[in-house]
Amino acid sequence: MASKLSVVFRRFASSSPAGPSAVAGEHSGGAQKWKMLTVLVALPSVGVAYVNAFVFGDHHEEPPEFHKYEHLRTRTKPFPWGDGNHTLFHNKHATPLPDGYEE
C-alpha cells in the first residue's frame, strides 16, 4: 500500500514532463469535441425537453381513478413531518392518500 502511495506521490511531485501526455498524438482535441457536443446536442436537447414539458404538456389532467389496494400506501407509523399522513413531496393533485385524493 505504501509503495502505491509513493508512486502516486512521485508522479504528482515530479516537475519533468517526461511521461506520456493525455493530449498527445491522435488523442488531442478531446475537450473541443465534448464542448461542441455540449453546445450542439445537450443544450438543444434540454430546450426541446422544456418545450415538450411546459408548452405542449397538458397540465389540467384529472388524476387517474383511485383504487384502494391493500398493498399500496400502507402506513405502519406516521411520517415525522406535518400531520404524518402526507409524503415529504406531497402533491394533492397527483399523490393519493390511503383513502383517496384530496379535494
Score class of each variant (00 low, 15 high):
residue 67 H to I: 07
residue 60 H to A: 12
residue 102 E to P: 08
residue 86 H to Y: 07
residue 71 H to G: 04
residue 38 T to A: 13
residue 36 M to N: 15
residue 87 T to F: 07
residue 101 Y to L: 05
residue 56 F to H: 10
residue 18 A to V: 02
residue 44 P to G: 02
residue 13 A to Y: 06
residue 13 A to T: 03
residue 28 S to L: 05
residue 20 P to K: 11
residue 97 L to K: 11
residue 7 V to I: 10
residue 10 R to L: 10
residue 60 H to V: 01
residue 101 Y to A: 06
residue 103 E to I: 02
residue 60 H to F: 08
residue 85 N to L: 15
residue 43 L to Q: 06
residue 47 G to Y: 01
residue 60 H to K: 10
residue 37 L to R: 14
residue 96 P to L: 01
residue 21 S to Q: 10
residue 84 G to F: 02
residue 19 G to T: 05
residue 95 T to L: 09
residue 61 E to D: 10
residue 51 V to A: 12
residue 74 T to W: 09
residue 29 G to M: 00
residue 78 P to N: 03
residue 70 E to C: 08
residue 18 A to K: 12
residue 75 R to Q: 14
residue 27 H to F: 14
residue 15 S to M: 05
residue 24 A to D: 14
residue 31 A to L: 13
residue 31 A to H: 11
residue 12 F to D: 04
residue 25 G to W: 03
residue 55 V to P: 03
residue 14 S to P: 01
residue 72 L to E: 13
residue 89 F to C: 09
residue 62 E to L: 13
residue 23 V to A: 15
residue 100 G to T: 04
residue 25 G to I: 00
residue 74 T to F: 07
residue 4 K to W: 04
residue 44 P to W: 00
residue 49 A to Q: 05
residue 27 H to D: 14
residue 26 E to N: 14
residue 28 S to V: 04
residue 63 P to A: 05
residue 3 S to H: 03
residue 12 F to Y: 12
residue 5 L to P: 05
residue 44 P to I: 00
residue 3 S to W: 00
residue 77 K to N: 03
residue 35 K to N: 10
residue 4 K to N: 07
residue 2 A to C: 01
residue 73 R to A: 08
residue 35 K to M: 13
residue 87 T to E: 15
residue 80 P to W: 01
residue 95 T to P: 06
residue 98 P to H: 05
residue 32 Q to C: 13
residue 99 D to V: 00
residue 88 L to Q: 10
residue 76 T to V: 05
residue 40 L to M: 12
residue 17 P to M: 06
residue 88 L to K: 14
residue 27 H to A: 11
residue 32 Q to A: 14
residue 30 G to K: 07
residue 71 H to D: 14
residue 7 V to H: 10
residue 61 E to W: 02
residue 63 P to R: 02
residue 74 T to P: 13
residue 55 V to T: 06
residue 62 E to F: 07
residue 14 S to A: 08
residue 66 F to K: 06
residue 80 P to K: 01
residue 46 V to M: 11
residue 29 G to A: 02
residue 5 L to G: 07
residue 92 K to C: 15
residue 63 P to M: 05
residue 32 Q to G: 12
residue 21 S to N: 11
residue 17 P to T: 04
residue 66 F to C: 09
residue 32 Q to S: 11
residue 70 E to F: 10
residue 90 H to A: 06
residue 38 T to Y: 15
residue 56 F to I: 03
residue 38 T to G: 15
residue 94 A to S: 14
residue 91 N to H: 12
residue 91 N to M: 04
residue 65 E to Y: 12
residue 78 P to E: 02
residue 45 S to L: 11
residue 86 H to L: 05
residue 72 L to A: 13
